Amino acid sequence: MLLTTSPLDVHAESEGKPRIGGGFIDTGVHVGADNWVPNPNTGEFSRAEPGTVSSDPNEYKYELQCHLGGGDFDTPCLARQLDCKDREDGAKGIPVMWLSRPRGVPGAVWTYHSGPTCFYDPKPEDLLPRIAADIQRQFQNLPVSAGKVTAQPSPNTLRGAETNFYAEAVEQQFDITMFGQQVHVVATPVQYTWNYGDGTVFGPQPSMGGALPQGRWGEKTRTSHAYASTGDFQVVLTTSFQGTYSVNSGPPLPIPGQGQFNAPPQGISVWRSLTRNYADDCNANPQGQGCPGAGASR
């Protein structure tokens, strides 16, 4: 499936002209063509006219700069790839590497010829490299929900006791438009980092935790935390998502790196527990410590 289609593409194919744009095929991404001739003066490549018989002993094709094959791109390379701006005549530019091999030699291997250089053509360009270069930024800007945070017990807990925190995060899907193309993004939660608000950070690690029955509150869990002092704290969960994207219903491609998203802060109040012995009860002494109306201490 082509990344871009237009009546010009169909018309060109009907005349037997080689198509320049890249597209999706079952084995991944196919780019380039095999009917190119270099200008002996400038070294720039252009399409050979239909029926042209070349005297050049080599044949040529281009590949997208930073393309590793299939749907994979070299992420560090994308950060420094050649910037091909659109020309004033409307021609679109893409960064490419030119390869060559001996013409008509069975099993000949494609080797580097020249580049990187900007390739321009008046037809719609293959936008996959632009999408690949920008998809991580787009992914981080999506409204991905990091998950709901729950504390047990809540909203109050005791100093020195284990407070169980757990998240509820799910896979999410988004449809966006990039460079005029329809891009489907799938975000899957893979790691969690807990900032408990008292200077303690746990993660990133793969467990989102889980709920405990009330009778087991206070037990230590994978994501629980025991506060050493009293006070009000804001617990922040950061969920790391791994993403994939597909262009125009093409095969899913991995998004480089991960996207980090924060859940809304969960407030927790940490109290202290005191044990005292009393000679009478609250019926006899309503103002005694620990009695209703006598106030509580933190």
Rank of each mutant, 00 (worst) to 15 (best):
T111F: 03
D134C: 05
G257M: 01
Q258V: 15
A108D: 09
D232C: 05
V236C: 13
V170G: 00
E15S: 05
K85N: 08
D89I: 04
K123D: 15
A296G: 08
V53C: 07
C66P: 04
N277Y: 12
A33G: 13
T238G: 06
G259W: 03
P153M: 08
L3M: 11
T193W: 09
V201R: 00
P286D: 03
A133N: 05
C118L: 04
I176K: 01
F174K: 04
H30A: 15
F73W: 13
D134K: 02
L127S: 12
G293D: 09
P102V: 12
D9A: 14
P116R: 01
V10I: 15
G218H: 05
N35D: 13
V201L: 04
T75H: 07
D126F: 06
C282A: 07
M208D: 11
V149P: 08
A146K: 03
S145W: 09
Q258R: 14
P265F: 10
Q289T: 07
P116S: 02
W36A: 11
Q152V: 07
N277V: 10
R159G: 11
N35F: 08
A279Y: 10
P189E: 07
G231K: 02
S14N: 10
K220D: 05
N141M: 12
I135M: 06
S54R: 05
G197H: 06
A108W: 07
Q260C: 05
F174G: 05
H67S: 14
C66A: 13
C118V: 12
Q182D: 11
K220Y: 05
P57Y: 04
P18M: 10
K92E: 13
Q287D: 10
G51W: 08
G209V: 04
S100L: 08
Q152W: 09
S114T: 10
Q140K: 14
I176Q: 13
S269N: 12
F174A: 01
D56F: 01
K85H: 03
Y112D: 15
G218S: 06
Q152F: 00
S240V: 03
R272M: 13
T75I: 05
V201I: 15
R159F: 10
W98G: 01
A226C: 11
T188L: 01
E13D: 15
L2S: 00
W217I: 09
L253S: 11
L82A: 02
G51D: 02
G104S: 10
Y245W: 01
P40S: 09
Q136S: 13
A228H: 14
V236M: 08
Q172D: 04
F73N: 04
L8N: 12
W271D: 14
I255L: 03
G180T: 08
I25R: 01
T223Y: 11
T150V: 15
R137I: 02
Q152I: 03
N41G: 12
S246H: 00
G43C: 09
R101H: 08
K220V: 01
V183Q: 01
G199W: 09
Y60Q: 03
P124W: 05
I255S: 00
N277L: 11
G160C: 07
E59M: 08
Y227L: 02
T275I: 10
A169L: 10
Q260N: 15
K85L: 09
L68I: 07
G267R: 14
N35Y: 14
G259V: 03
C66I: 11
G16V: 04
G199D: 12
R80G: 11
